[in-house]
Design a protein around this nucleic acid. Structure first.
Lengths: 371, 371
DNA sequence: CTGTTAGCGCATTCAA
DNA sequence: TTGAATGCGCTAACAG
């Protein structure tokens, strides 16, 4: 069997309480005794039993991180920065360092609930939920209820990249991304280049991120009088001359979406994609149809993932400081950073203009009506 | 406080032992009693305390995953597949599902040791170490010793993408990647296109992955009589006409390495990079120098990460089935899959020929000596 | 400053 | 089939 506190105590000729004290260093112990204990620990290669300690102290070294998929760089970047912030290493107490439990939910609320239960079992010190939320009544409510319970039992909750919960339960900190503003600036950029017919390959319609990006898109269009309203309400159908298709946040969705978009309205001169991966799919589809980017059609992404700069043409996109956000979420979930006023903070986004967007080839065309 | 087993027992009018039995379902319990307990559990929203359970049962629901950096798609893909395999979800026992503890080590052996200690504290059910090892005597030995101890105390150990430990301790399963064979086939591909002067932007010299890929590279060159020896021994210096520079596994290393390579030997007609990310850096550097890929110089990567197909030109590279490997590592670390004979299995790699490699523009040039 | 005592919440003997 | 009792390894009062 493994060596226990008692073994160390016996070896050092002291009581187990004393060993516990030197180990935790939260109580005065005589220097000589401490040395003796230290030696015994080293000689026996003793490693504390975290489960016993957690049980006795009602504490935990675990922090849960719920992501859609860590293999997706969007989530990988957040998770990585978060882990680095809370884990062992410089800047953290030497013996300290929490462990990051990464859970792939695939965006499914059922899966989120399952993992929240698993993390509650472990009495996790904190839980960070990343990525947009599914906007579906019952499930959302169930998740919110679960989170409220966790929070009330002392688990710190941080939402990173998703909108605040309806009734901002105290103790739940939210770090939203300014998807709406970023999308708006992106579409404004296209409009200022002269584009008047802009297609959109959006993400899954049920996700908050999709909705917010679309709202920003519409807001920019509305400000130019290209669609009715103020863009706050996103309709389900297409707006005249500004086609939208829904898909996923992956490359193939972008590919398929672009083809569908061209079928619906061959006269679009620019396409905004749900994110960078989809944008690359859009570019591939356009290339396969013999269209050049940005010569014939401009394409824009979202997120500014590392590979976007290496695509050719390099992608115009909206940068979200994912690593900073992940690190901050880490500090918040450890309580090492004070929660923002009102428990909600917004992470700003930045337009990155690169090579995949340019003025339309035939600006005149955008003026005529096609049907 | 949280509701405990005793609370449930009181509510159901049974003993806590009975509740434990229905919960674990590993002991006969009368149907009616079971129903009563079930109801009490539901009414009280009871969630077992994993730490207490782990302490009492000497078990654990945690599996550690050591990676260089989850944000790197190479590791992200492995970690993701692994998590999916061991986590909650279809295919796994409903109440089951282990939690994946992801640790960024940055490749540093000290960091590896630290996290191994943290995982030992938690009495993790298993630990998976991914990515190449640092080939530095003392540290490697320390890690090996630590792993042996973990293994002997019942923790399942799986090495995924690194060479087997010197003295293959029983209980330690290894899934090596055939970096050597892949690199050899890649260089052979370039040779068969007519290249005779091939530069190499290698990874960090102290890593096993770097060494293996270089060995494969040299083996191919040696087979064509372009370098002396059989390629098994990798020298530290350059071989005549086949320049090598060392860097990292990231884009900027590729960029800098390419420039250095051109400085050393402007006559190279092809460059093999340490991996795909570095290859994109190489491409960028060449473009900045006014060279076209593959028109002027061919470039090849390694790993075949998702973005490689979207680069332009699409990267010729060597595919490693990272997701399959990660999933398999997951099965092995849970003991759900029988370890391979000899505790070691090799994951094969596959040459992916795409657009970034082509015959050299001036094959004749490769024949003349430059100095 | 140090030892003794009493749980933390659960699984698992052993009896009944 | 069920209950009572014991201990997992550690921390946290409480004494001394």
């Amino acid at each position: 069997m493994a060596v226990t506190l008692a073994d160390v105590a016996a070896r050092a000729g002291v009581s187990s309480a004393t060993v516990s004290r030197v180990l935790n260093g939260n109580y005065p112990v005589a220097g000589s005794t401490r040395e003796r204990v230290r030696r015994a620990v080293a000689e026996l290669d003793y490693v504390v039993n975290g489960q016993a300690r957690a049980l006795a102290a009602a504490s935990s070294d675990l922090v849960g991180v719920l992501v859609n998929d860590v293999a997706d760089p969007f989530f990988g970047l957040i998770a990585s920065a978060l882990q680095r912030e809370i884990g062992a290493g410089p800047g953290n107490p030497p013996s300290g360092g929490k462990l990051a439990v990464v859970c792939n939910t695939g965006g499914s609320p059922e899966s989120e609930l399952t993992y929240l239960t698993l993390l509650e079992r472990q009495r996790a010190a904190g839980v960070v939920l990343t990525g947009g939320a599914v906007e579906d009544g019952p499930h959302t409510a169930a998740v919110a209820a679960r989170l409220a319970r966790l929070a009330s039992s002392g688990t710190r909750i941080v939402l990173c990249g998703r909108p605040p919960l309806p009734d901002t339960a105290p103790g739940i900190t939210t770090l939203t991304f300014d998807n709406r503003g970023g999308a708006r600036r992106l579409t404004e950029h296209l409009l200022s280049l002269g584009h008047r017919r802009i297609g959109c390959v959006a993400g899954p319609p049920e996700r908050s991120t999709t909705r917010h990006r679309l709202e920003g898109h519409y807001a920019a269009l509305a400000a130019h009088g290209l669609v009715p309203g103020d863009g706050d309400a996103v309709g389900s159908g297409d707006l005249p001359g500004q086609p939208v298709v829904y898909g996923g946040y992956d490359r193939s969705s972008g590919y398929d979406g672009a083809l569908e978009l061209l079928r619906k309205d061959p006269s679009v001169t620019a396409v905004v994609a749900s994110n960078d991966a989809a944008a690359l799919g859009v570019c591939a589809a356009l290339r396969d149809r013999g269209l050049r980017v940005p010569g014939d059609i401009s394409v824009a992404g979202f997120d500014d993932l590392p590979f976007s700069v290496d695509a050719s043409p390099a992608l115009t996109t909206v940068r979200i400081p994912l690593q900073e956000a992940g690190a901050r979420a880490g500090r918040l979930v450890l309580g090492r950073s004070a929660p923002p006023p009102g428990w909600v903070a917004t992470v700003t986004t930045e337009l990155m203009v690169r090579e995949s967007t340019a003025p339309p080839a035939h600006p005149a065309r955008t003026a005529r009506t096609d049907r």
